[in-house]
Design a protein around this nucleic acid. Structure first.
Lengths: 208, 208, 208, 208
DNA sequence: CATGAATGAGCCTTCATTCAT
DNA sequence: CATGAATGAAGGCTCATTCAT
């Protein structure tokens, strides 16, 4: 966690630091990202950096934390409105849409998240706490769907939750390929999403 | 590609170099892997390294190439025998089993493959050529299944191929978690595989 | 010397600063001691430090000064009572006992004194003024002993004063080894002191 | 210990490195001494330094080792010739003379030795092995003197060895004051030495 | 007098690559 | 082809001191 100094900073400066960090970590892997570059971009002295953060890693963890929380807020916000009236597959669709919008609006966060997933060492140290958040989230959703009688009772909800997690990641990959999202192409994205939902729905819905 | 000198090397020495590289790249990300360490493990002089490879990256590309080819060989070998008599889902099962066996027998290659997937920079440079190999492979398989009438004709085979690719990766993750495979636990692995196949089968099989 | 601001400080705060400095300088060499750490321990702001002292060195000099004076007070106090009735060797014994007690009661001061002795640069700058205090003190004592006819008239009092200084330091080292004084073990310390006195007495007493 | 690389170096270059290190460590405390300065003085690249030594500390330990060994050689050489025919006090005199000559010829080594004695942290790490060498050496000498009947049988040889060690250090200090030895003034040094010997002799010789 | 953020030179160390033999 | 020393640009981090409020 950043030191108190960081949180006492004027909003604008703090934002500049975060922005610089996002830029640097989105463009380079954790190991290649340079503290010097971040300080420069943020327009602060090297020494100041270490007055805000104990460490390069300290900053990185903070950035990851911001990312995770922002994404959760996003999804929660979108779901809250519809939790009651929507069925399982409608909710899933809602979630995917949230994910896409999040990626569109925060491309750097997506890049950082992906990078994190590839560094074993960092994952153990940083990702640990968030690791199963995603699977747990889906599993809980699945349980509700099972209770509602929407889903195939034979399904192993823990395992399927992992499948859904994986497919969700790949959905982002597919749509958001090469780091460039075509905002104009929302329509084709919808199509992709709906095809994935169709695949999933067939995979787990209850049949008579 | 390695220089000619490398291929002129006595088999044993060449193997030692490759082995050392696998060790180092499996244990560290590309950027953290040290050329010095590889040379040491291989028992060659630093200078020799640069007589075999133009670059650290040169070696890495070569290693990735070996990995990909080895995996393809594996799967092809297993499929050739059954291509004719098996249906789509049986073949898919065969493929998954091949994948598991490959991971068991080549844990370092799996580690390197995973690491590669996370480094955008490398991916663009190295992975480009292999990128869609996996999806293309699945797509081709799907086309056959469609032609046979086994699969849902509404299915977008290109897209589903990506889903299968993603699920395949996650299958490896789920089974081969924490880098330790329990060889004794093949049975529970089978169960997992069969559940995934069940999920997929429901997702895409033809219904009347 | 500290600035006026320092002496205007409420007694308690001033004491806290001194205490923090003693802690830090006793635990680290002058160069490794950190101003930040002192300010923190003392509970003052970094800026305040430079309102009290011009410099890290300014504080250090002050601390050394306190140390020297405290030690002198100690010994003087113990000697004054007995100056008249005791002979040279009895006084010397008294002095050694004072030294031991001082070390027991002010371990941090001893640590700082020792550290100072090892840094040539500092010594030239700081220790200069005190340097010969100790030798001068012993020499004066020796002169009295010579006048009394207790000591060997051939003795070079200036030189022997240096020997006594040196032995005195080593006495502290021997007894107070590893920074831990065993308060319960005063008896064995006495024995050591008496052996040193025996050695010295033989070395310089007048013989017929 | 330095790496093999260092010992494979051409004599002249190795000497240059050692010389640069002696200069730097004699002029600055261990903590203030800069690796960069040493490399510059020696005329080698920064990187080369770390090809010779694992560490700044590695070099320092080596330098201390050289110092200790050189001094021991010195004294041993001088004593061997006379061990048989000389009595205890004559040998002691010989040792002191060796010490003075050593200091004269190796002022930087003396400076480094002194500096080492003042850094608690380093002492524990580096000095440990040599720590009691000096006392042990004197004690052994004293035992011989006792056996010969030259010394006061009541004497505690372990303790007196420590006194002698201390006096020896102070002898160096007295003669070699301010880091400048007046080579022309050997005569006055002799006088000082003889006075110390007289002091010691009176302190411990056997009396009837 | 107090506060605590800002500064930035400087340090040790790493490592891919080159070079001379 | 082999060798292994040489190189030097970077990079992360520390800390005494200054500054603005």
């Amino acid at each position: 966690m950043p030191k108190a100094t960081f949180f006492n900073l004027p909003e604008a400066k703090r934002a500049r630091v975060i922005d610089a960090a996002l830029d640097e970590f989105a463009a380079n892997s954790y190991h290649k990202a340079r503290v010097t570059a971040i300080a420069e971009k943020a327009g602060i002295a090297m020494g100041s950096f270490y007055q805000y953060f104990t460490d390069k890693k300290d900053l990185f963890k903070y950035i990851v934390d911001l990312t995770v929380n922002k994404k959760l807020e996003y999804i929660n916000h979108d779901m809250m409105a519809n939790k009651e009236k929507y069925g399982f597959f409608q909710l899933l669709r809602e979630i995917y849409l949230s994910g896409i919008r999040f990626a569109q609006e925060n491309p750097r966060l997506v890049a950082i998240g992906n990078a994190l997933l590839t560094d074993k060492e960092l994952q153990q140290e940083i990702w640990g706490e968030y690791q199963d958040t995603s699977s747990a989230f889906f599993q809980q959703l699945l349980e509700v769907g099972l209770a509602n009688g929407e889903l195939d009772p034979q399904m192993d909800s823990a395992l399927v939750a992992k499948f859904l997690t994986s497919l969700t990641y790949s959905l982002t990959d597919i749509i958001y390929k090469d780091g460039e999202i075509d905002l104009a192409d929302l329509e084709s994205e919808m199509v992709t999403i709906d095809k994935m939902l169709y695949f999933i729905e067939n995979g787990i819905k209850k049949r008579d």
